[in-house]
Simulated scan of single mutants.
Amino acid sequence: MQAQLGQLYNAVPPRIWLALGVLVLGVLLSIVVGAVNRRLLERAGLPSIIEGTGFERLAQGLGTSTIAIVAQLSTYFLIGLTIVVALTVADVGYTDTFWTRLVAFLPRLFVALLILIVGILIGDKVELLVAERLRGVKLPEIGLIPTLAKYSVFYLAILVALSQVRINTLALVVLLGAYAFALVVFASLAFKDMLSSAAAGIYLLLNQPYTIGDQVKLGEQSGIVQEVDMLVTRVETDNREYIIPNRAVFEEGIVRVYD
């Protein structure tokens, strides 16, 4: 048995054994690095930052998490590099050009995937933050702004990721310009009421025809002013709160009631 093993060992070129050793060691090291990356991301507080994002919910639906995906990507990336190094050590000469290109491509692919994941996470987080900021604005068009913000971030992330893998993004850049132009036109049409409310709000804040605590009447609604911001005026009476767009105040006028 030992003689057969010795013959097998002698029959295999030393570079092949060395390549196998590099492969085994590299795979083990890749697994360790992936586990360490996961621990570092968890200690950095990333789970609480990405909690509630669409990508995280999707990952959890698949039985994993964003952190696990990023850690696995780093593991697979290192395993890929290990395979390339092992094949180089094994002196697989007829694939030199292929492996050279692959070695140059793998880091760009890894960075592109990370950019996509980070872009999706940032887009989801931007949507949540914008929606939270605009929660108090009771205008129907407001609901579109968080979605537009999210997909704008997604689009930019895709552009950057594609540029990392050397894909021509000129057409996408042109589309981005067209998208920005369409967004401006759409915003001017869809949010004209909001813009007029904002303009009226600036006028009201500068001139202060009424202030917090004043008794006012607008049409059939009357009460005490609780808050005046750039978009709306909040009036409260009899356990009811009226949220009046500033454009309505500016167009219809408001009656200030004196005791």
Rank of each mutant, 00 (worst) to 15 (best):
A11L: 12
V27K: 09
L195W: 14
V111T: 09
D229F: 10
S222K: 04
E42G: 02
T97N: 11
D238Q: 13
L40H: 07
L218S: 01
P140L: 09
L73Y: 10
I244Q: 01
S163E: 13
T53Y: 15
E42A: 05
S196R: 15
L134G: 03
T97E: 14
R57G: 04
N207L: 05
L116N: 08
P107H: 01
I158F: 13
L102T: 02
V118A: 15
D214H: 04
L205K: 13
G177H: 10
L73W: 11
A59W: 03
V84M: 14
I16Y: 13
L195I: 08
I202K: 07
G123L: 04
G136K: 05
L58Q: 09
G34W: 03
L58M: 13
F181M: 11
L106C: 02
T66S: 09
L46S: 12
Q7E: 15
L148R: 09
V70N: 02
S196C: 09
F154R: 00
Q7P: 01
V89S: 06
R15N: 14
S222F: 11
L162E: 07
G253P: 05
G253M: 11
N10Q: 15
L134M: 04
K217D: 04
G21Q: 06
D229H: 09
I158L: 14
E236L: 04
L129F: 14
I142C: 07
L121M: 00
N239E: 08
V89C: 02
V130T: 05
F191Y: 08
F55G: 02
V130M: 05
V216G: 00
V185L: 12
A104C: 01
V225R: 00
W17I: 01
D124F: 04
L81K: 02
L156D: 02
D238A: 13
L40F: 11
K217Q: 15
I202C: 01
